[in-house]
Computed example of a mutant assay.
Amino acid sequence: MALIAACACAATMWTGGPSWARWVLGGVAVVLAACLALAALIGPAARCNAILTGAEPMEVILTGADLIGADLRGVRGITEQQVRAVAKVDSDTKFGPLK
């Protein structure tokens, strides 16, 4: 946010130097604002419920994984306690045998 403000301010306040520099600074401010807006829109959509039913997480690193609402029924090679110790889970996370 500060970088966007700095670029926009520099672009509008710049009186000396070539005019193309003002356009570059203004363009950088617009691009940074667009990236920030895109990240705000994509962020929540990127968080989806993991369906790991029947998976073998021996090959997966779960440390710090966001498994809130994930379906972990039938997962082999790791226990519920091991998952809870290293990953983020909640009451909607499903553990147990595959039915």
Rank of each mutant, 00 (worst) to 15 (best):
R73G: 07
A33K: 04
A40Y: 01
A46H: 04
T79A: 12
M58K: 11
V60Q: 08
R22G: 07
G16F: 01
L67N: 07
S19C: 00
N49V: 13
M13I: 06
V60L: 14
A39I: 00
I78S: 11
W23R: 08
S91G: 12
G26L: 02
V24M: 12
E59Q: 10
G77C: 05
A5E: 15
R47M: 11
V83C: 09
V75K: 01
I42G: 00
T93M: 11
L38W: 15
T63Y: 09
L36N: 03
W20I: 12
E56G: 09
A33N: 02
Q81D: 15
A5D: 13
A70M: 07
D66A: 06
G74R: 03
I61N: 15
N49Y: 02
K99D: 15
K99W: 15
A33H: 03
A6K: 10
L25V: 07
L38P: 00
D92F: 13
A55M: 10
K99H: 15
L72P: 04
P57G: 08
I61Y: 00
D90T: 06
W14H: 03
A2C: 00
A34M: 09
M13D: 00
V75C: 11
G69P: 07
G64L: 12
L62S: 14
I61E: 15
V30E: 00
G43P: 00
L25E: 01
A29V: 01
I61R: 15
P57K: 10
A65R: 04
S91E: 15
P18A: 15
R47F: 09
S91N: 13
M13E: 05
G26Q: 01
A87D: 13
I61F: 04
M1V: 10
V31I: 11
